[in-house]
């Protein structure tokens, strides 16, 4: 564990708390992509199968349980109590493409051909693309409320911090490299490029998230 990874995990945790607070406060899920949330649930469900297979640390186990439970809870909130505020027509990105792409890449380049490893690779590639429906919806409507912007920023920042963590690990752990994490992490962080720019130039200056 190092400071970059810990900060990344905490930012990831914060993003989920921000989203749940947003859903509770406004009692609405307008502006939030249910498809992205479904994808995160799928990401955690396929990656954290290893909860039953091995033990890393109490921290690791508790975080995994939290990510699984919270993503399930968010999907439940959007699917059931807040369903009336969900506008399906705005959340129109075809996620089948994302799932199929992640599946093909995971099958082509896993670390090892075992069910758990292929699912792990699938979850890493899927996570790198899972924000696309959310970004797509924000681009389509051209705006987002501030708390939703904070949510997306925290989510993007988390993977950017993980990249610093991998640099750190490369130098401190005998050239440690996980190329799947690196490739997916670069893709994931790059996807946020435009968003980060608008967030920093507008939202942090007290204006709303609006596309020019």
């Amino acid at each position: 564990m190092n400071i970059f990874r810990l900060s990344g995990d905490l930012l990831h945790l914060a993003s989920i708390f921000i989203l749940i607070a947003r859903l509770h406060q406004t009692k609405s899920c307008a502006g939030i992509s249910l498809k992205t949330q479904y994808l995160y649930l799928l990401v955690f469900a396929t990656r954290y199968l290893d909860l039953f297979l091995g033990f890393v640390s109490v921290y690791n186990t508790l975080m995994k349980i939290f990510f699984l439970a919270s993503s399930g809870y968010i999907v439940y909130l959007m699917y059931s109590p807040l369903k009336a505020s969900y506008d399906k027509s705005l959340d129109s990105f075809r996620v089948e493409y994302i799932i199929a792409f992640a599946a093909v890449v995971a099958l082509a380049f896993p670390h090892k051909y075992s069910v758990v490893e292929v699912l792990w690779s699938f979850s890493i590639y899927l996570e790198s693309l899972a924000i696309i429906p959310q970004l797509f919806q924000m681009t389509r409507t051209g705006e987002a409320d501030n708390i939703t912007s904070h949510y997306v920023f925290a989510l993007g920042g988390y993977r950017a911090l993980y990249m610093l963590n991998w640099f750190y690990r490369y130098y401190t752990e005998d050239n440690y490299v996980d190329y799947i994490s690196w490739i997916a992490g670069i893709v994931q962080t790059a996807l946020y490029g435009d968003f980060f720019y608008i967030y920093i130039t507008r939202v942090l200056k007290g204006k709303s998230f609006k596309l020019p």
């Binding site: 990874r5 995990d9 990831h12 290893d50 091995g54 890393v56 690791n60 975080m63 995994k64 990510f67 670390h111 090892k112 490893e117 792990w120 993980y162 963590n165 996980d178 994490s181």
Partner: peptide
Amino acid sequence: DEDDVVHDEL
């Protein structure tokens, strides 16, 4: 076995 990949990150 020895070839098992360890994923210690979240």
